[in-house]
Design a protein around this nucleic acid. Structure first.
Length: 635
DNA sequence: GTAGGGTTAG
């Protein structure tokens, strides 16, 4: 056909024109000169491949009108066509058509495969049970689908029962059945069973090898996955696009840049880079290996980008801390009329949280509500806990605890992260009582706290000066809640004691705690010494922190501020001199504010903003107002 | 006429 589609019009009935076509090996429509049932069947296959619903429906009504629907062949093809076009209600109607009382194994296989492929594994499995109940014996076409559906709903017992039947029917050596079994056993982490099926299969094709490699990869067994991959190559099996996608995801997880690059070379050699999934895996691998520009080049060079491509490149930027870039790519995605999904929003929302970009975050939340993204019916609640958590976290980090609380209260299901976000948020913004209150509710609702919960609680106590409460939490967290205190928890308590002026207690804790103090702990003490003007303790803290982290500019700045606050200016210049000697540079402080459509960035002493005079006028009046209220700022 | 394998998120 030279890749060209030629349409011919056939006369079906005197009054009706009808187009018949089927699929050539090059996937281009080919035409038939007759309109008998066999032609309709091949045409239906073409409709399934091209998702041509209207043509498929036309053939359906033709078959119906001409009494061909009693043919089991037509029924199977119609069910298959509707399933591939994601119209399961239509497929079911054909299956349940009154004249099809005696359904055969083909019709059952087609409807089971249809339900499972459309994500309704439970329904698919129900049809399998019904099929067995009416006495139809499943065949080698039934099992691959049914076994897959067992994996989707994670029922180990059903897989084993089905596997037993596979043996009884003598189908255990079929490679299709075998790879489905390997796939499902690995998914539910029955590794020994998967390996046994694999080893006993006499013929191993590339799909079976992929099931092993990718199955291991998906459950985090990277070593085993790579070992199977090595054996696969040893056996002379040429990796397919599916293989490289899986293997790239492993190198991405373990951040193995060198091997990732070798696979990239192979991909180019084989021409696999024309595949979207392969390129997406490459983007992810380079991103995880911190090669953002290479990832971006691959993304830009792609002809056809799918939602995975956008999500991957957005995630690469988010993970490397380029939050501005994350939001820019998200805007570009919308500009390209690509609809974000739940993965997109859960990646972009944290960028809003980091930038405290409330407007952007609120817009995304609005977009999710308006477009019903992950929504449950007409309410504004999302089904997905992770998405709700991302929305909540965005509001909490942007300081809008009211909206964070609203999302939290509406959530039907909460996980430990949901509670932690609220505790952290309340603590961070100075609502210590609310943080504790949420924690008590958490305990009442039988949600076990984790390490992060206690970081939240301790930092909440620290910010509002609840020293006794904080110490109690540290003492009880292991005995009462079974959470072992980590360095982070001790650091929170040191910070809390320091802020409350209990410098001696903080210092004692630094020396006596069961974990070796880290620079963060000593720096917390140093900051507290500045606050409470204790130069003696500050010198001890500074000595320790500089020993552990000599290049950190904050240590020197804090120490010089301690001297400054008590008027020991000679020492101030001494510290500054040491900084110069050690070549420690102070990173200028930076803050930003989101206003209307833009983010305004300010660096310490910055006078470059176009409206700098107005801004400083505002600052002066604020300072005056603070002084009027006798506010004494801390240095 | 009907079957098996891949990539993105806290």
């Amino acid at each position: 056909m030279n890749g060209r589609a030629i349409f011919r019009v056939y006369l079906i009935k005197p009054t009706r024109l009808f187009l018949c076509f089927s699929c050539s090996p090059s996937s281009k429509p080919v035409f038939h000169s007759s309109y008998d049932p066999p032609t309709c069947i091949s045409s239906l296959q073409a409709c399934a491949d091209h998702k041509n619903i209207s043509k498929g429906k036309e053939i359906h009504s033709f078959l119906l009108k001409n009494g061909f629907l009693s043919s089991p062949l037509s029924v199977t093809s119609l069910i298959n066509m509707y399933s591939k076009c994601n119209l399961m209600n239509h497929a079911l109607k054909v299956f349940n058509y009154p004249t099809h009382d005696d359904k055969n194994v083909f019709a059952y296989n087609a409807i089971i495969a249809g339900f499972i492929a459309n994500g309704f594994s439970g329904d698919g499995f129900e049809f399998y049970k019904k099929m067995r109940l009416v006495g139809i014996v499943p065949d080698k076409f039934t099992f691959p689908c049914v076994i897959r559906s067992c994996g989707d709903v994670m029922v180990a017992l059903e897989v084993k029962k089905t596997h037993g039947l596979v043996f009884k029917l003598g189908l255990e050596l079929d490679v299709f059945v075998g790879s489905a079994l390997v796939n499902t056993y690995l998914k539910i982490e029955l590794i020994v069973e998967a390996q046994k099926v694999f080893e006993e299969l006499p013929v191993r094709d590339v799909v079976l090898w992929n099931s092993m490699v990718n199955g291991f990869a998906q459950i985090g067994r990277f070593h085993e996955a790579l070992e199977v991959f090595r054996r696969m190559r040893e056996n002379g099996v040429i990796p397919s696009r599916y293989t490289v996608t899986g293997v790239l995801s492993i190198f991405s997880m373990i951040e193995d840049f060198d091997n990732g690059r070798i696979v990239h070379g192979f991909v180019t050699k084989m021409g696999y880079d024309s595949g979207v999934a392969v390129s997406n895996a490459l983007i992810d691998m380079y991103g995880k290996c911190k090669c953002v520009s290479v990832a971006l080049n691959i993304f830009e060079a792609m002809d056809a980008k799918d939602i995975f491509s956008w999500n991957s490149i957005i995630s690469v930027h988010q993970q490397c801390g380029d939050y501005d870039g994350t939001l820019r790519l998200f805007d570009r995605m919308l500009g390209n009329w690509v609809s974000p999904d739940l993965v997109t929003v859960t990646t972009v929302l944290p960028a809003c949280s980091h930038l405290a970009a409330l407007m952007h975050g609120r817009e995304i939340h609005g977009y999710m509500i308006v477009n019903g993204l992950g929504k449950d019916g007409n309410s504004n609640v999302f089904n997905d806990i992770m998405v709700n958590n991302a929305v909540m976290d965005m509001y909490a980090k942007c300081g809008n605890m009211r909206d964070a609380r609203m999302v939290f209260d509406l959530m039907r299901e909460k996980d430990v992260a949901s509670w932690n976000i609220m505790i952290m948020g309340y603590g961070m913004h100075g609502y210590g009582d609310e943080a504790l209150n949420i924690f008590y509710h958490m305990c009442q609702s039988q949600q076990a706290p984790d390490e992060i919960t206690f970081v939240g609680l301790l930092s909440a106590c620290s910010h509002v000066g609840k020293v006794k409460k904080g110490r109690d939490f540290l003492a009880e967290m292991e005995s009462t809640y079974g959470v072992c205190p980590t360095i982070e928890h001790y650091t929170c308590v040191i910070d809390m004691l320091g802020r409350a002026g209990q410098l001696k207690e903080a210092y004692e804790l630094l020396l006596t705690m069961p974990i070796k103090a880290n620079p963060v702990g000593w720096r917390a003490l140093l900051a507290a010494c500045r606050l409470h003007k204790n130069t003696e303790m500050a010198e001890i803290a500074a000595r320790n922190v500089i020993e552990l982290e000599p290049e950190h500019c904050g240590n020197y700045v804090l120490m010089s501020n301690v001297y400054g606050v008590v008027g020991r200016y000679e020492e101030v210049s001494e510290v500054r001199h040491t900084m110069r000697q050690q070549n420690v540079k102070k990173t200028p402080g930076c803050s930003w504010i989101e206003l209307m459509n833009g983010v305004h960035v300010f660096i310490t002493g910055d006078r470059t903003h176009p409206e700098t005079d107005t801004i400083y006028d505002g600052l002066y009046s604020l300072t005056a107002l603070l002084q009027e209220h006798e506010y004494v700022p801390l240095i």
